[in-house]
Computed example of a mutant assay.
Amino acid sequence: MDLTYRAYTPADAADLVAFLTTDTWPFHGSPLVDPDRARQWIAEGRYCNDGNRTFWITAGGEDIGLVRLMDLGDSTPVFDLRIRTAHRGRGAGAHALDWLTRYLFTEFPGIRRIEGTTRRDNTAMRRTFLRCGYVKEAHYRDGWPSADGTAVHDAVGYAILRRDWLTGTTTLPAWDDEPA
């Protein structure tokens, strides 16, 4: 898949509102984003400020996705990845996760690890994490309430360590370390 990444700028605000509000995001806090809410997020600097950077994922001249990098002043940033429905299941998520991992570890030498969280039932993203060298580190029971408050889902956390990325290895957590 031939994907490119370009930085979001405030001049892209109308395109970002359209992107967020014309598709569904079933594994995000709000599966449907209201245009006023999207504009509020933009005005608050959620997509472009000292601690956040956002990039369009482009294929064939079309914006098919978005990567938002957060907590960039921390040694452990997190991210939001959104792929348009029509382009899901084609490898764009894995390409974007590899890209953002390389970008963060290359551009920010103080970053030790990158974290991502998804719902337990988002099996496609969970497989993508593993395929890209991320390791499951957490399982949060009833940790992800639905937007309408009618359901609660388990959430799972994954991370990659700089040292593992550099060496191409995977360091597993010590799961059996509970005190006797």
Rank of each mutant, 00 (worst) to 15 (best):
M1D: 00
L3G: 01
L3F: 05
T4W: 08
R6F: 13
Y8F: 15
Y8S: 07
T9A: 08
T9W: 15
D15Q: 07
D15F: 01
D15K: 09
T21E: 12
T22R: 11
D23S: 13
D23K: 13
P26Y: 10
P26H: 03
H28R: 08
L32M: 10
D34I: 12
D34W: 11
P35C: 14
A38W: 15
A38N: 04
R39M: 12
Q40K: 14
Q40S: 13
Y47V: 13
N49I: 14
N49L: 00
N49R: 15
G51N: 15
R53W: 12
F55K: 05
W56E: 01
I57C: 15
A59F: 07
D63F: 00
V67W: 00
R68S: 06
L69D: 01
D71R: 14
D71Y: 10
L72N: 01
D74I: 00
D74A: 04
V78T: 12
L81H: 00
R82V: 01
R82P: 06
R84V: 03
T85Y: 02
T85V: 05
T85L: 06
H87L: 00
R90L: 03
A92C: 03
G93L: 08
A94F: 02
D98R: 14
D98I: 01
L100H: 07
T101E: 01
T101W: 06
R102K: 13
L104Y: 01
L104M: 06
F105E: 00
F108S: 03
P109C: 02
G110Q: 14
I111R: 13
E115C: 03
G116M: 06
G116F: 06
T118R: 06
R119F: 03
T123F: 10
T123V: 00
A124K: 14
R127P: 00
T128Y: 02
F129C: 03
F129H: 07
L130D: 07
C132M: 10
Y134H: 02
V135P: 02
V135T: 07
K136T: 03
K136D: 01
E137Y: 06
A138G: 13
H139D: 05
H139Q: 09
H139M: 05
H139F: 02
Y140N: 12
R141F: 09
D142Y: 15
G143F: 11
G143T: 11
S146T: 11
S146D: 06
T150M: 14
A151N: 07
V152Y: 04
H153Y: 10
H153G: 01
H153E: 07
D154S: 07
A155F: 13
A155H: 08
Y158L: 09
A159Y: 06
R162F: 02
R162A: 15
R163W: 04
D164F: 08
D164W: 05
D164Q: 13
D164C: 04
T167R: 14
T167D: 07
G168C: 15
T169A: 13
T170P: 05
T171A: 11
L172C: 05
A174V: 12
W175R: 12
D176L: 15
E178F: 08
P179V: 11
A180G: 05
